[in-house]
Design a protein around this nucleic acid. Structure first.
Length: 753
RNA sequence: UGGGGUAUAGCCAAGUGGUAAGGCAACUGGUUUUGGUCCAGUCAUUCGGGGGUUCGAGUCCCUCUACCCCAUCCA
């Protein structure tokens, strides 16, 4: 395992491995081949293959192809391409759920024989109706009573194609009134007289996801089956199938994580398809799309996508990642990799009136801070082009580029100054007449002229014309709903940009940084030397653009008077609960909150009463019961307790008599729930008696203070938070046994001294 | 509405009772022949709200709120 922080899934894997639950980890990436993979798939690929790599395990690539009406070989190829492009290896072969149709069928037959599955003959509408709703239980179909023989016969005839689609269906016999809708006799097999893209015509029944997936995982020896959050409710079926079939361990377990969402784009198959089929973009590999093919065509590197997936982490909270995070990853990757060249997107002619002849300038492909070798020759002469943005007749404040008063350096060449601005009839600037300073040549500048910026340029005679495709976000708002949110300016094509000749003649790379513009990629499909085409991958960060037109700040975050949250109504207590509450507050003088917790929970209240009967210290006992015991009840249920009310009373007694501190009491209670030992025994065995003697504690505090001079200083400067740090250190040094009250007093005394 | 989940900065996200990690974004300043990179620094008295337990709570207990998922013969 690398030094990178572990996400919760890796933590589970590590623990399972350590506990010897499995010999090795085995994951799988299981897409349905019914659409093109996008960056959300990349997250899953990086996760599944990444875990396998980190723990020296394996990851299968499996096509989950159980719906013959939707799947296609072209998607299989696209999925394979995506995994390969990202640099992962699926080993010997690609797995297909459709390869298991035979075995799956046998498992279904087994379920029928166990009377755990039946052929239902309700129609679609009836099935829906019988299922009930989220608040009302469903009811079972009368066909659930069919005999094993009849079910076997029917199921076989379903397979043989003797029935029409929808006439019969195979269902698991679970529980039609389960609070989990997914468990109300889920559908296992449906009749489809369709040709499957891989297995062809042989089958007339096809397994459903919930039946096929868990068994496919099992048959492949998968250990950790990772899927997205929307399958949380399906986990019960996953476990039911494996358990009911009595499959031998080791068996796989399902874990869920949040799927990737990103702002300014859409990720759902349906919406992506709408964009492609509606012609809003140019195919599945349109560089504006979040598809893998799109990123690839745009010029993103697989490394940058992988880094992105690793950076965003894996968790269970639904979230939307800022696309700026992805853009950072590709900039960061390309910065140290690609050559810098000069391209003028919006040319403005500059004639250097005092320059005669021509020369070839030496120009490194990489800046001083990129440790790579390589250079080209830059032809220079009288007529050049610069970008229109790099000249301003009436410059705004803070403008560093060329103006009538301000000279500028031509990158790798000379410093020039504007002599005259030539305009057309409408007043548009069409040309700049300039002069150059002979002794300002790049690398041997003795002119002493200070310029604020160096701009890109191309030689008019030698430059090549190129098409440049500028991509912006596909949608204009962060959380697009539909087509109406499309950004009308997401694609801007510049037909006549000018680029320095070496890019075409020497081809030092396929990706470039166009100096001061951004990163660009020679389009892998449309590019040819006679008509070069470059895609903009991502722009450079541009702090000038931000300064020039600051974004409308989203309403400065001013201290708002915290929005008062509406409190919902608390359900009133029943008469019995009210009675208990009154008794607890009056007879035992319990804190109202604690009394409330106890009174509302029958089992806790009972436990409390029994404990108080054993040792009359109601307040302490109530606190333990309402907090710690309540936790155990919540986690493990109130049956099969490993401790008794009497033992809790004993624990309270030790607390009451100050034999142990409340911190140690928690620890002892943990031990009681884990081992079932009596509290006195635990305290005795582990020597947990509280240390209250200041003489014993003081030297420890002195040592801690001596070891942490920095923190002592910070504390004295007023950092009150550090007080807790010192207490923590002292308690740690004493194994938690020091009396925290004594420690508090002593530490304060010594620190203030 | 029954059930299952989730909530830590503008966006992700660590954190298993003892000083609120890290990345992105943003903002200072320095270096710079890219308004890039790099470097230095700033950016949560507080973890959805309210109570409780504790010497000490983002972490334990109670409660409320908001959002997501489930009633496809899709996966």
């Amino acid at each position: 395992m690398s030094e990178t922080k572990k996400d919760f899934l890796r933590a589970i894997v590590e623990e399972d491995l350590k506990a010897g639950k499995y010999e090795a980890v085995h994951t799988r990436f299981p897409p349905e081949p019914n659409g093109f993979p996008h960056i959300g798939h990349a997250k899953s690929i990086v996760l599944n293959f990444g875990i396998a790599r980190d723990f020296n395990g394996q990851c299968n690539l499996r096509m989950d192809d159980t719906d013959p009406t939707k799947e296609d070989m072209k998607y299989v190829e696209a999925l394979k391409d995506a995994v390969k492009w990202l640099g992962f290896d699926w080993g010997e072969k690609v797995y297909f759920t459709s390869d298991y149709f035979g075995k799956l069928y046998d498992y279904a037959v087994e379920l029928i024989k166990m009377e755990k599955a039946y052929v239902d003959s309700l129609n679609e509408e009836e099935i829906r109706e019988y299922r009930g709703t989220v608040t009302e239980p469903g009811r079972r179909s009368k066909y659930a009573q069919r005999s094993v023989e009849e079910n076997l016969d029917l199921f076989e005839r379903m397979k043989n194609g003797e029935f029409a689609e929808g006439e019969h269906i195979l269902r698991a016999k679970i529980d039609m009134s389960s609070p989990n809708m997914k468990m109300r006799d889920p559908l296992l097999y449906r009749i489809r007289h369709a040709s499957h893209y891989r297995v062809g015509e042989g089958w007339h029944v096809y397994p459903m996801y919930d039946f096929a997936h868990c068994l496919s995982d099992y048959m492949e020896g998968i250990t950790h089956s990772l899927c997205t959050l929307e399958f949380e409710n399906n986990r019960d079926i996953y476990d039911w199938v494996i358990e009911t079939l009595g499959l031998k361990p080791p068996r796989p377990y399902q874990y869920e994580f949040a799927r990737l969402n990103m702002n300014y784009t859409v990720m759902s198959k349906r919406k992506l398809l709408e964009l492609v089929e509606g012609g809003y973009v140019n195919g599945w590999d349109d560089p504006r799309l979040p598809t893998i093919a799109g990123y690839k065509r745009r010029g993103y590197t697989p490394e940058s996508i992988i880094t992105f997936c690793e950076q965003i982490g894996v968790a269970k909270a639904n979230s939307t990642v800022d696309v700026a995070q992805l853009e950072f990853c590709i900039r960061d990757d390309l910065n140290t990799k690609v050559p810098r060249v000069m391209c003028v997107l919006d040319p403005l002619k500059v004639t250097i009136e005092n320059y005669e002849g021509s020369e070839l300038l030496d120009a490194s492909y990489y800046p001083h801070d990129v440790p790579k070798e390589g250079s080209r020759k830059l032809p220079f002469s009288k007529e050049i082009y610069i970008d229109k943005n790099d000249f301003s007749e009436n410059p705004p404040k803070g403008y560093y580029r060329l103006t009538p008063e301000q000279p500028v350096r031509l990158k790798h060449a000379y410093i020039i100054a504007c002599k005259e601005v030539v305009k057309d009839a409408e007043g548009n600037i069409v040309e700049i007449k300039a002069e150059y300073f002979q002794d300002s040549k790049s690398g041997s500048d003795t002119s002493g002229i200070k310029v604020r910026s160096a701009i890109q340029w191309v030689n008019a005679a030698a430059a090549k014309k190129v098409e440049v495709r500028l991509y912006d976000r596909l949608f204009k708002c962060e959380a697009p709903e539909g087509l109406e949110d499309l950004n009308p300016n997401s694609l801007k094509v510049i037909k006549d940009a000018l680029i320095e000749p070496a890019v075409i003649d020497e081809k030092p790379d396929v990706r470039f940084q166009f100096e001061r513009e951004g990163y660009f990629y020679a389009d892998p499909i449309d590019y040819c030397d006679d008509a070069p085409v470059f895609n903009k991958i991502v722009g450079l960060k541009d702090s000038w653009a931000k300064k020039e037109k600051p974004k409308p700040k989203p309403a400065k975050k001013q201290k708002q008077p915290k929005p008062v949250q509406k409190e919902g109504e608390v359900t009133p207590m029943s008469a019995q609960e009210q009675g208990r509450y009154d008794r607890f507050t009056h007879e035992f003088k319990l804190n109202p909150e604690v009394a409330n917790t106890l009174a509302r929970d029958e089992k806790l209240a009972h436990f409390f009463d029994e404990a108080v009967a054993a040792y009359e210290s109601p307040v302490i006992i109530a606190n333990i019961v309402a907090n710690d015991v309540a936790r155990v009840f919540k986690e493990n249920g109130s049956e099969n307790l490993t401790f008794t009310p009497k033992e809790v009373a004993q624990l309270a007694k030790m607390l009451d008599e100050e034999t142990i501190s409340s911190k140690i009491a928690k620890q002892v209670f943990e031990e009681m729930t884990a081992t079932g030992k009596a509290p006195e025994v635990i305290v005795e065995e582990q020597g947990l008696k509280q240390i209250s003697d200041p003489a014993e504690i003081a030297p420890i505090i002195d040592a801690i203070i001596a070891q942490n001079p920095d923190n002592v200083a910070k504390y004295k400067e007023g950092n009150q938070k550090l007080f807790g740090f010192f207490i923590g250190q002292v308690l740690k040094a004493t194994g938690g046994k020091a009396n925290p009250k004594v420690v508090n007093d002593l530490v304060r005394e010594k620190l203030e001294a």
